[in-house]
Write a protein that binds this DNA or RNA. Structure first.
Length: 885
DNA sequence: CTCATCACG
DNA sequence: ACGTACGTGATGAGC
C-alpha cells in the first residue's frame, strides 16, 4: 500500500503580505546592496521552510493574484476599494518571491481575472477527486471554507511561522459553524478588508447566532417573517441583496479555467547553486551559511563567530583576560535562579569565547577578578539573574554595562520575550536558537551534548555583543538613556538584593491556620453536599453550575464559553440562599488554604524564608511583578485572609516589620500630568480626595454633607478615571444604571476640566505617534490605536489614558527604591528592604532603628520625584506584616 | 495547555 | 451597535 500523496497549496499574495507586515518595523533593515527591500522575501523563505518541514509534500503550487481586475470587481465595483495602496517597499518584492520559488523548484501560477483563492479552490477540488491529502497555507480566513477531512487550512496567526491548522472539527470548535457556512458568515457580517459591507449593524457575533439557528442566508430569508419586529429584522430585509451579493463574492470558485493540473506541479527540490546566487543577491548571509553548513562541515562560520576555548581545572591558570569588557552568560537548568542547578557559562572577550560546564571555575583567577573588578564591565542578558546566581557562588558582579533583556524591554515592552533567542529574532538577529529547541520543553528539558551546548552558549554571548551598539543607540534615540542608566539598571541590583534577603514566614503559624481552614472547609463541604442532596466537586465551576442552576433551579444563570458562570459577582446576587452562602465561604477558605498556606510552605527554604523573583521586564506599564511566590497579592481586604500576614515575620529576634506606602499615588500623578487646578488644589490642601470628588459630582458645598455611600461612589469614579473610563464599567462597579454613571462622568469632567483635556490630548497624541510615555520616558506602543475595530481601538484608547498614570507611579517608586537602598547602605543601617507591592515598601529592622526609619523612609519616598502636588507617605510597624497597619 | 476563578495594587 | 474598566500570578479542572 502506498501512502497518500500530499499536496501543498500556498496563497502567495497573502503570505507575502503577511511576511512584509510581520517585519514592518524592520523594513529599512532589510535592504540589500542594490537598495531593494527584502523583508517579505525573507519571511516567505522562513515560512516555506517551516511548512515544508511540517507537511513534506509531493506536489506544491503557489498561487498569486493576477492583478487588480477580477470577475469580482466587475460584479461589485467597490470590492477591495477601501484598501490602501500596496507600499512600493512591498510590491517591488513580488518578483523576488517568485524567483525564490524558482530556486526552490516550486511552481507558481496566476490567472487573469481570478484571485489566488480561486486557483487554490479549483486545485484543491481536483486534488480531492484524486484522493490527495491537501494543506492550504494562507493568512486569509476566507479559505477555511475549503476545509474537509482531506483538506486542511494552515492559517498564519502571528507573523508567518506561527500556524493554526483548521480542520472541520477545529472550525466548528472555534466558530461553531461548518466550512460551507463561512460564506454565509461573510455575507451577513461583511469583510472590512475586502470592503464588502454585509448587513448593517450585524457583526460576527450576531451573524454566528443567526447561522446557528438558520444554517444559511437563504434559509434565514425563508423564515424572515417569523422574526419579531426589531431593528435587526428591518436591516436584514433592507440589506437582503447586499447579503446575497457578499456571500457570492466570498464564495471561492472551484471551476477556474486553469491551464495547469496536478501533473504539472511536482516538487522538484531546491537548486542549491541557484539558491546560493539568489541569497547572495539578497544579502541573506545567514541563509547562505546554512547552505554551506549543509553542504560541507568545513565551511563554518569561523570568520563571523569567535572560536570556543573550553576552560578546565587544568588550563585555567594559563589564561589571560586583558580587555575591560566582556559578554557573559550563565546557563541554568530551570527558571528559579535562587535554587536552580548550574549548567555552564560563556565569556566572550577579545575575540575568544571561553566556555565551561564547571561553574566553580568562575571562582578561580583570572575569571573571578574579571567579574568582580569594578573597572571591568559585563554585558549580559538579565543582569538580576546573573547577579543573584553569581552571588550564590560567592561572586559579586555589580558592574554591568549592557543588559540585553532590560534594554530591549525598555525599547518595546509589548510581548517582550524572556527567551534570548526569540528576543534576538525580534531585534533582527537570527543567530540564536530558542532554548526550547536546543534543550527541549517542559519535563523533557535536558542539557545537550557538549559541542551543541557550547555552540549555543557562544551564540548567546555573541548575540549580546552583536546587538549592544545598535540597541544602546536606539535607547539614545528614544531619550531613554536616563531611564536605563539611572533607574532600571541600578534597580535590577536593588531587586536582586531584596530577593536574596527574602522574607521569613513562620511555618508553625501557617500550619496552625491551615488546619483551622481545613476543618472549616470540610464542615462547609458536608453542609453543601447536604443542601445539594449529593456529593460533587465544589471546585469545579462546571459541576457547581449544574447543581445550582439546573438541579436547584436558582435564578440569574449567566453563561460563559464553557457553561454557567459561578463567579462571585453572579453568586453575590443570590446571597441569603444557604448553599450559595456556603459555597462563597468555601471558596474563600479553599483559596486561602491552597494558594497562601500550602503555596507558601511549598516555596520556603531551610530558614523558612521565601525568596520571590521580581520580573522586571514583563508588564506593559513598567510595574514589577512577583513570582514563586507572588508576594504582591497576599490577602488584605478581608479580615480572615489578612491574618495570613501574621505569618510574615522578621528574620531576627528583636526586629520588626516596617512598611510605608504612597497614599493615592496614581491620582496624584494624574493631578500632576493633567495640570488640573481643582485636583491639584485638593491635594495641596490635603483634602480627602474621594470626599472632594463626591462634593463635586453630587454638587455639595461642604464635606460634612458627603455620606459614606456618596464617598464610595466617588471613589469608584476616581478609579474609573485612572483606568480610562467607560460608563458601562463605572455602572458595573458601583451598581447603578448606565445613564446615571454617564451623568457622574459628565459632572466629573465639568468639575475637573484639566483631566478631561488630558484624556482627549493623550488619545490624540497616541494616535499621532503610535505610543505613549511616562514621566521618565518609559514607552508603550499601542497597536490598536488606529484600528477600525471598535473594541481594539477603545482598548488602546483606555490604555493610552491609563499607562502614563500607572507607569509614572511605577517609575516614582522605582526611583524611591534606589535612593532607599543607597541610603540604607550609606547610613550603615541594619534595616533591609524586603518587598515592593506597587505603592508600598516593606522592610525589616532592629527595634532600635524603627524611629530612624519612621523619619527616613517617608522622606526618601516623598522626595523621590518632584511633582506639582505633594506625595504623601504613610507608615506603620509591628511584630508581623499584619501589625504594620 | 487553556479556562475560570480569585488574590493583590 | 460594537462590549467594556487598568495591571498582575496561582490554583484546580478538564481537555
Amino acid at each position: 500500500m502506498t501512502e497518500k500523496q500530499k499536496l501543498l497549496l500556498i496563497d502567495g499574495n497573502s503570505i507575502t503580505f503577511r511576511g512584509f507586515y510581520a517585519l514592518f518595523m524592520q523594513t529599512e533593515r532589510f535592504v540589500n546592496h542594490d537598495g531593494l527591500h527584502t523583508s517579505a522575501v525573507f519571511s516567505f523563505k522562513r515560512m516555506l521552510d517551516k511548512i515544508l518541514d511540517d507537511v513534506n509534500p509531493d506536489k506544491i503550487l503557489v498561487a498569486f493574484d493576477a492583478g487588480k481586475k477580477t470577475f469580482r470587481t466587475e460584479k461589485y465595483s467597490d470590492y477591495k476599494a477601501g484598501r490602501k495602496k500596496t507600499p512600493e517597499e512591498l510590491s517591488e518584492q513580488f518578483p523576488y518571491v517568485k524567483k525564490l520559488l524558482d530556486c526552490y523548484g516550486i511552481k507558481h501560477y496566476e490567472l487573469k481575472n481570478y484571485e489566488a483563492d480561486d486557483i487554490i479552490g479549483t486545485m484543491s477540488k481536483e486534488a480531492e477527486k484524486h484522493g490527495y491529502e491537501t494543506t492550504i497555507v494562507t493568512g486569509d480566513r476566507d479559505l477555511t471554507q475549503l476545509v474537509t477531512n482531506q483538506t486542511t487550512v494552515a492559517l498564519t496567526v502571528k507573523g508567518v511561522t506561527e500556524i493554526e491548522y483548521y480542520t472541520p472539527n477545529h472550525l466548528s470548535e472555534k466558530l461553531g459553524i461548518s466550512p460551507s457556512q463561512i460564506t454565509d458568515l461573510k455575507g451577513l457580517a461583511g469583510d472590512t478588508s475586502d470592503n464588502y459591507p454585509g448587513v448593517s449593524k450585524v457583526g460576527e457575533k450576531t451573524a454566528l447566532k443567526l447561522l446557528n439557528q438558520y444554517g444559511t442566508i437563504e434559509n434565514l430569508y425563508e423564515h424572515i417573517d417569523e422574526f419579531k419586529k426589531s431593528k435587526m429584522k428591518e436591516h436584514l430585509i433592507e440589506d437582503k441583496e447586499i447579503a446575497l451579493t457578499c456571500k457570492n463574492l466570498a464564495t471561492i470558485r472551484r471551476d477556474a479555467p486553469l491551464e495547469i493540473g496536478l501533473a504539472d506541479i511536482d516538487f522538484a527540490g531546491k537548486d542549491i547553486e541557484k539558491l546560493r546566487e539568489f541569497y547572495q543577491s539578497m544579502d541573506f548571509h545567514k541563509f547562505l551559511s546554512e547552505l554551506n553548513d549543509k553542504k560541507s562541515e568545513e565551511v563554518s562560520n569561523e570568520e563571523e563567530l569567535p572560536s570556543i576555548v573550553e576552560l578546565t581545572f587544568e588550563n585555567i591558570d594559563g589564561q589571560r583576560l586583558n580587555a575591560d569588557n566582556a559578554s557573559f552568560y550563565l546557563e541554568l537548568a530551570d527558571e528559579n535562579y535562587h535554587t536552580s542547578p548550574f549548567w555552564g557559562f560563556a565569556l566572550l572577550t577579545d575575540g575568544q569565547c571561553y566556555v565551561s560546564k564547571d561553574v566553580s571555575l568562575l571562582k578561580r583567577e583570572p575569571l573571578r577578578e574579571f567579574l568582580e573588578n569594578k573597572n571591568k564591565t559585563l554585558d549580559v542578558f538579565d543582569g538580576k539573574k546573573t547577579y543573584v546566581s553569581l552571588k550564590r557562588l560567592g561572586i559579586e558582579a555589580e558592574s554591568i554595562d549592557f543588559d540585553l533583556l532590560l534594554v530591549s524591554y525598555l525599547l518595546n515592552n509589548t510581548d517582550n520575550s524572556n527567551d534570548l533567542g526569540q528576543l534576538c529574532q525580534k531585534q533582527g538577529y537570527f543567530g540564536v536558537k530558542s532554548d526550547d529547541e536546543v534543550y527541549g520543553k517542559g519535563a523533557k528539558k535536558e542539557i545537550c551534548a557538549d559541542e551543541t551546548f557550547f555552540e549555543h552558549l557562544r551564540s548567546k554571548v555573541f548575540a549580546i555583543a552583536f546587538l549592544k551598539q545598535k540597541l544602546m543607540q536606539k535607547l539614545k534615540d528614544n531619550s531613554q538613556d536616563h531611564l536605563y542608566f539611572e533607574i532600571e539598571r541600578p534597580l535590577s541590583i536593588v531587586l536582586a538584593k531584596m530577593e536574596i534577603a527574602g522574607i521569613k514566614a513562620d511555618k508553625e503559624t501557617l500550619e496552625t491556620m491551615g488546619s483551622r481552614f481545613k476543618e472549616k472547609i470540610s464542615d462547609l463541604e458536608s453542609l453543601i453536599y447536604q443542601e445539594a442532596g449529593e456529593t460533587f466537586n465544589i471546585n469545579s465551576p462546571k459541576q457547581l453550575g449544574m447543581i445550582l442552576f439546573d438541579k436547584l433551579g436558582l435564578p440569574g444563570a449567566k453563561k460563559t464559553k464553557t457553561g454557567y458562570s459561578t463567579a462571585v459577582g453572579v453568586l453575590e446576587k443570590l446571597r441569603g440562599n444557604d448553599i450559595v452562602d456556603n459555597v462563597l465561604l468555601y471558596r474563600q477558605f479553599a483559596k486561602l488554604k491552597s494558594t497562601y498556606i500550602d503555596g507558601l510552605i511549598k516555596v520556603m527554604d531551610q530558614d523558612e524564608k521565601v525568596h520571590t523573583r521580581y520580573t522586571q521586564t514583563l508588564t506593559t506599564t513598567g510595574r514589577l511583578s512577583s513570582v514563586e511566590p507572588n508576594l504582591q497579592n497576599i490577602p488584605v481586604r478581608l479580615e480572615e485572609g489578612r491574618k495570613i500576614r501574621q505569618a510574615f515575620i522578621p528574620s531576627h529576634q528583636g526586629w520588626e516589620i516596617f512598611s510605608s506606602d504612597y497614599s493615592q499615588i496614581e491620582l496624584r500623578v494624574l493631578a500632576h500630568i493633567s495640570k488640573d487646578e481643582n485636583m491639584q488644589k485638593a491635594f495641596k490642601d490635603d483634602f480627602d480626595i474621594h470626599a472632594n470628588t463626591a462634593m463635586k459630582i453630587f454638587g455639595l458645598s461642604s464635606p460634612d454633607e458627603v455620606t459614606p455611600n456618596m464617598r464610595r461612589q466617588a471613589k469608584a469614579v476616581n478609579f474609573g478615571i485612572v483606568y480610562g473610563i467607560s460608563d458601562f464599567g463605572l455602572a458595573q462597579s458601583i451598581g447603578c444604571r448606565r445613564d446615571q454613571a454617564k451623568t457622574f462622568m459628565e459632572t466629573y469632567f465639568e468639575s475637573f476640566p484639566g483631566v478631561k483635556r488630558y484624556m482627549t490630548e493623550i488619545v490624540e497624541l497616541a494616535r499621532n505617534q503610535g505610543y505613549v510615555e511616562t514621566l521618565f520616558k518609559r514607552r508603550r506602543y499601542l497597536e490598536g490605536i488606529r484600528s477600525k475595530n471598535f473594541n481594539q481601538r477603545s482598548f488602546a484608547e483606555r490604555t493610552a489614558m491609563n499607562t502614563p498614570i500607572q507607569g509614572s507611579a511605577a517609575d516614582i517608586i522605582k526611583v524611591a527604591m534606589i535612593k532607599m537602598q543607597e541610603t540604607l547602605e550609606k547610613e550603615e543601617l541594619k534595616a533591609r528592604m524586603l518587598l515592593q507591592v506597587h505603592d508600598e515598601l516593606i522592610f525589616e529592622a532592629p527595634e532600635e532603628e524603627i524611629p530612624v526609619l519612621e523619619k527616613l523612609v517617608p522622606s526618601v519616598m516623598d522626595s523621590a520625584v518632584k511633582l506639582d502636588v505633594p506625595l504623601k507617605v504613610e507608615s506603620g510597624h509591628g511584630k508581623t506584616w499584619f501589625d504594620t497597619k
